[in-house]
Design a protein around this nucleic acid. Structure first.
Lengths: 216, 216
DNA sequence: TGACAGGTCTATGCGGCGCTTAGATTCTGA
DNA sequence: TCAGAATCTAAGCGCCGCATAGACCTGTCA
């Protein structure tokens, strides 16, 4: 960043935004472990105390970024659903989109789901974006049930399973363990994720045909 | 711990083990964020430098604990599979066991899957326990395919999906986001997890009956 | 028995961390 | 125009991981 280039004026002008960008770049380049407020301030070219005029503490900066992440994820999920030609294809697309988001934006993904780093559950905007994302999944499952593409009955376990499946794939990929095993299965993790997402839709459709009914 | 009770002798005797226990207790009581080598040493009643005679750095202590975790998880998975009356029941039991382990031992679970904390992939014993755990899942899926309880064909995507499903449920539960949504679905997260695990087996069985075949 | 080597622990110090406080500088609007 | 608000710097607190040097204990072997 602009650590060496001195600012023109005493006041930065858009320090808050600059800090957020510097933080993201730092996570991208050196991982979550390298993130400190002092370091972020240094990268942004300001004194170590400056960030505290924009964020009450370190977690607040990270929470702001997490909120951005939830908004980005929601947008991608909405677009993926809208672009899909059928409810079943939408379900597959949601899984792939969730996992791809995590893989392309691991910095956001980490901050969104690590309570020791950020607290998006205490941020109204982040919570609402997360709720709307979840609703996209619920609506898509309802579409699928109406179309007979997935088993009828209580959608709760199905929605939970689909969320957990996508989140598990994303976590295992981003944090490392999946890559090694994927090579033996499908050549690449991308290919394996696609196979899984499509396989799930096929299995759910088959179960629906077989008359399986979900429920407590 | 024994911070206030002075040791009888200059040498501790079993400091390594004491540090591991103190670290686990610290994570349990105050979370991962509270773990520092100095703090662990204080809880164990030794000087801040003492741990470095047993672990080269902080990550090594955490990696040792992660290795223990993989061994514990493997044992539980092996037992769960052995106790199940059928291949299909074994599959359900594996999911429930994985998720329950994470919920009951979040300290271990975190250390096993957070590369910024520990590096179990660089620990031979941990890697082997993880491989054996994965093999338990592969074997169980193979049993299910032979019994016709899950679709035939390439087991890769299925094994991956089941692992990701369990890991996603575990992560979402341990890190918070699942609890809120589960209340609306099944009353409690435990109940929801059970419903999901059983639902998955039912859906897979239905898909097998419908003649679904997995594969690239 | 006693010297000594090696393992285990303490003491001290380095730079970096989150966060606080006090004070300097700039911007804003009455 | 000018006071007050907003933004930034400087300095300091106790904590951290880790390195080094030295104190202590214990097992070993002459």
């Amino acid at each position: 960043m602009s650590a060496n280039r001195p600012r023109a004026s005493y006041h930065h002008g858009s320090l808050r935004e600059t800090l957020v960008r510097a933080c993201l770049e730092l996570i991208r380049a050196e991982g979550i472990g390298a993130v400190s407020l002092r370091r972020v301030a240094r990268e942004a070219g300001v004194s170590p105390g400056a960030p505290y005029h924009h964020f009450p503490d370190r977690a607040a900066l990270l929470t702001a970024i997490a909120g951005e992440g939830f908004a980005m994820l929601e947008e991608r999920l909405v677009d993926a659903r809208a672009a899909a030609p059928s409810p079943s294809a939408a379900l597959t697309a949601l899984t792939e989109t969730y996992v791809r988001f995590a893989h392309e934006q691991p910095a956001y993904f980490h901050l969104m789901f690590r309570p020791e780093l950020a607290h998006p559950d205490k941020d109204e905007a982040a919570k609402e974006a997360a709720d709307r994302s979840f609703q996209v999944l619920c609506d898509t499952v309802a579409d699928c049930q109406r179309a007979g593409d997935v088993p009828a009955g209580d959608p709760g376990p199905l929605v939970t399973a689909l969320w957990a499946l996508a989140h598990g794939l994303a976590s295992l990929w981003v944090d490392g363990p999946l890559d090694g095993r994927a090579k033996g299965f499908a050549g690449s993790t991308e290919a394996l994720v696609a196979q899984v997402a499509q396989g799930v839709a096929a299995v759910l459709a088959g179960a629906a045909r077989a008359g399986v009914r979900l429920g407590p």
